[in-house]
Design a protein around this nucleic acid. Structure first.
Length: 838
DNA sequence: GAGCACTGC
């Protein structure tokens, strides 16, 4: 057995050797030359200074080397380990500077130490603040200061400050590792215009939390809710801001919610929007709102706000011109009346402030003398990143079999390249990952004894936390890790130790089809910017190599950037948010990328059907309530309906369960599947998936002591259920504040009667009337509206069951059109709702 | 009898 594998192993090795270029020159580029400066794609930048230290202590044997690499932590690693759980991956921060100790801090650049109250603050009102003696804080700050000074963004501090004194908007491009997320808010804190708080948005929770911790440490202040805390964060279910918070990291969704409550953002002196290049729907809405707000302020149209608002747009690979034009158009519109506008951009880098001013003045007097003394232009700034060189290798011939190509390359790299240096493989999805994982394991078993081991580790979002955790464990002796990942490793998770990247060039993309009202998840080619991002993952700790499983021509043919989400999603939620924010004319909302008219129309129609809009297009009472929920309009509609039918608590339970990833664990082997079916039998309800979810939530909530064990017994995801109860709590509180619920019960309500069940299903029908289908004589289901064929997904409890009509909460296209989350309803209930709505 | 990339309020 093992002999056969052995043979296969070396056969593979031979194929590989023949098929890609020999790697001698790759080996040469492995060792970065000291003093060479390179930026992404090979152009020069600064070499991180810890390089020499690493080399000096490098022992000869592989395992020791690995140990040293991880136990010689920089200031950064040390702090991130003490201040945050290990599972939180490091975000883009600076490289460390070993000379950190012994350099006296420059007090001027860091804010003064926190006030006296810090001394007694080992017992702050709530536990969120860092509990540390004052001298510990300042010592840490001092230690971090020279690290800060070594960041590429540091020399730009004065330019950035000057730019924002002149203009209200700055577009800042900073590549990975430039330090923009941590430093820019600190640069601005002591500015004369900055009397209030600085908000800085992040696309992900972990990033918001870990950045807040990091910045608090750098400033030598507390983080959290205490009076002494100057830095805080705000993410869903977790608000860690206090009365004196000056820098607040928050997720995009949180800032959007604040926009609904306070359209003029009065609590902020500055709003920094970070990672704009990821182009989430939320960021697009924020940019639109900010553009309008900045323009209104310039115009003196603000209702309440008196002080100026500074806006910084930060991005890694920004379409700078697009962003500048976007904000400048907003300003032009109201100075307006056909004024030409002139050039908008003013560079802040590589120009001395004096020269800039002259240039600016000249520009103004030349093209813009009609403009009032106020200076309303957009500044830009470019900050280089920090990256080791990455050598590129393309496939000479195109291939469709990424799994096989990746397998060959993994072994080729493993045999040819020295340790350490883990391999990160990008694949489209769980199925390909698991397939390749098995192959790598099989072949690795057959490797000769003297070859180091290969450790294959899968990584995707649906993977249980403890399995994801393995990525961060130190690599065992004489072993190379192969991480097989979805694009989760592209942005969300930073895998340490990677020097080789294999990129299949594909990812799964969700696409909403307006005409069918369904979304599909398709394997599509990635964009150039995504390919560059993946490649960059090889050069985070040392020089690396990136193997693309496609040809150079194919790369050249890729789209420049990933299509923004707003162009490929269901817009009803975004539009409801806009309407609730007071944007009546959504067609003319300033979108950075304008969605097709048809998509906007469909979404408006949907909102009208849900009763969120009046016939005139104005948001209704009901719509205002729906917008307050952290839910899609359809689910929000179900809750509003349920409040009228006295089944709100049950509806909240169902909606909470629908808001998380799978409650029921996906089993892989037939045996386990059968086991799960038996164990869950008492949870399953013949009415369908929604009542099954209700029972599951109720049983889980009733279980006061052994919830985890209960989950294990029933093959239910404990993590998902914890999340369900969080959401349930939030929704109950919201309903209470909206007067939809008179009190929040302490007990779980009893299992619903038949009458109550009917009410619940009819509420679902009201929200999901577009997602209804009737049973046909040919044994298929056809949607009531649109007459589409739809099959009940095999994961549903109603799979293979026949019922006169169904309502479903998810409509997805994979191999064919599937209904997921299905309940059995009566034909005439559907008719009744259709009658009422249309 | 299919299979779901990733965020987030």
């Amino acid at each position: 057995m093992s002999k056969r594998k052995n043979k296969q192993g070396s056969a593979i090795f031979q194929i590989i050797s023949a098929y890609t270029k020999p790697s001698e020159e790759a080996n040469a580029s492995q060792e970065p030359k000291r003093g060479t400066k390179r930026a992404r794609d090979g152009s020069p930048i600064d070499e991180p200074s810890n390089k020499t230290v690493k080399k000096a202590v490098r022992p000869t044997s592989v395992p020791k080397e690995l140990e040293i690499r991880r136990e010689n932590p920089s200031v950064e690693e040390e702090t991130s380990q003490t201040s945050q759980p290990k599972k939180i991956p490091s975000i883009t921060t600076a490289r460390k500077n070993p000379a950190a100790n012994g350099i006296r801090p420059n007090i001027q650049s860091a804010p003064p130490p926190s006030d006296q109250s810090n001394h007694s603050s080992s017992r702050l009102p709530n536990g969120k603040a860092h509990v540390q003696p004052q001298n510990g804080l300042s010592r840490k700050r001092e230690a971090l200061l020279s690290t800060k000074k070594g960041l590429p963004i540091w020399p730009h501090a004065e330019g950035i400050r000057a730019a924002l004194r002149r203009n209200n908007v700055l577009v800042l491009t900073g590549e990975t590792g430039s330090g923009k997320s941590t430093q820019v808010p600190q640069f601005l804190l002591s500015e004369p215009w900055c009397s209030k708080c600085i908000a800085i948005t992040q696309p992900r929770r972990v990033a918001a939390i870990s950045l807040a911790r990091r910045v608090a440490e750098e400033m030598g202040t507390f983080m959290g809710t205490g009076k002494a805390a100057k830095v805080g964060y705000s993410v869903r279910f977790d608000n860690a801001t206090g009365p004196n918070t000056r820098i607040k990291f928050l997720t995009e969704g949180m800032l959007l919610q604040e926009f609904l409550r306070d359209p003029e953002m009065e609590q902020y002196s500055a709003i920094i929007v970070d990672e704009v290049h990821e182009r989430s729907v939320n960021v697009d809405l924020i940019l639109g709102f900010l553009r309008n707000l900045v323009a209104d302020l310039e115009r003196g149209k603000a209702k309440k706000r008196k002080q100026p608002l500074k806006v910084v747009i930060m991005s890694a690979t920004a379409d700078v011109e697009g962003l500048v034009k976007f904000f400048d158009d907003g300003l032009k519109e109201e100075t307006a009346n056909g004024e030409a506008g002139g050039e908008a951009v003013e560079e802040t880098n590589s120009v001395t402030p004096g020269a800039k001013k002259d240039k600016k003045m000249a520009k103004r007097s030349a093209s813009d003398d009609t403009q009032p003394q106020q200076d309303n232009r957009i500044s830009t700034c470019f900050v280089e990143g920090r990256q080791y060189p990455v050598k590129m290798v393309y496939l000479p011939e195109p291939t469709d079999d990424w799994v096989e190509s990746a397998l060959k390359l993994i072994f080729r790299i493993h045999y040819k390249e020295p340790l350490p240096g883990d391999i990160l493989v990008f694949l489209p999805g769980q199925d390909t990952i698991e397939g390749l994982e098995k192959l790598v394991k099989d072949y690795a078993e057959g490797m000769e004894k003297d070859v180091p081991k290969l450790l294959a580790l899968p990584l995707f979002a649906a993977l249980p936390q403890h399995a994801q955790q393995l990525i961060f464990e130190p690599t065992p002796a004489r072993t190379r890790k192969v991480i097989l990942s979805t694009n989760i490793a592209e942005t969300s998770v930073t895998v340490p130790g990677v020097r080789y990247v294999i990129d299949c060039g594909k990812s799964k993309i969700k696409q909403f089809r307006n005409n069918l009202g369904l979304e599909s998840l398709l394997v599509k080619p990635i964009s150039k910017s995504a390919a560059i991002q993946r490649k960059g993952r090889a050069g985070r700790e040392a020089a690396g190599q990136c193997y693309r499983l496609y040809t150079e021509e194919a790369y050249n043919g890729l789209d420049e950037r990933t299509t923004p989400e707003i162009l490929r999603c269901d817009l009803s939620h975004a539009i409801l948010t806009m309407k609730a924010r007071g944007v009546d004319d959504v067609i003319n909302f300033p979108f950075l990328d304008r969605p097709p008219r048809e998509a906007l129309r469909k979404a408006l129609l949907q909102l009208l059907n849900l009763g969120a809009l009046e016939e005139t297009g104005v948001i209704s009472e009901r719509g205002l309530k729906m917008a307050k929920f952290p839910l899609t309009p359809t689910l929000g509609c179900v809750l509003v309906e349920a409040a009228h039918r006295d089944c709100l608590l049950e509806a909240i339970d169902i909606v909470s369960a629908l808001s998380v990833e799978n409650v029921f664990l996906n089993l892989t082997t037939d045996e386990r599947k059968e086991e799960a079916e038996t164990a869950r039998r008492d949870l399953y309800r013949r009415e369908g998936d929604h009542m099954t979810l209700l029972v599951t939530v109720q049983r889980y909530a009733e279980e006061r002591t052994g919830r985890k064990a209960w989950c294990e017994r029933h093959f239910v995801s404990h993590r998902a259920m914890q999340n369900v109860l969080n959401i349930r709590k939030q929704l109950r509180e919201l309903c209470k504040s909206l007067k939809m619920l008179s009190y929040i019960p302490s007990d779980t309500p009893p299992a619903p009667s038949e009458e109550r069940t009917k009410d619940i299903l009819q509420c679902l029908l009201r929200g999901f009337i577009m997602n209804t289908a009737r049973f046909m004589p040919d044994l298929s289901y056809r949607t009531f509206i649109g007459n589409q064929t739809v099959a009940i997904h095999p994961s549903s409890v109603l799979h293979k069951r026949q019922t006169e009509a169904i309502v479903f909460t998810e409509f997805v296209f994979t191999t064919k059109a599937f209904a997921r989350g299905v309940s059995a309803v009566q034909y005439d209930w559907v008719d009744e709702v259709i009658e009422k709505v249309f």
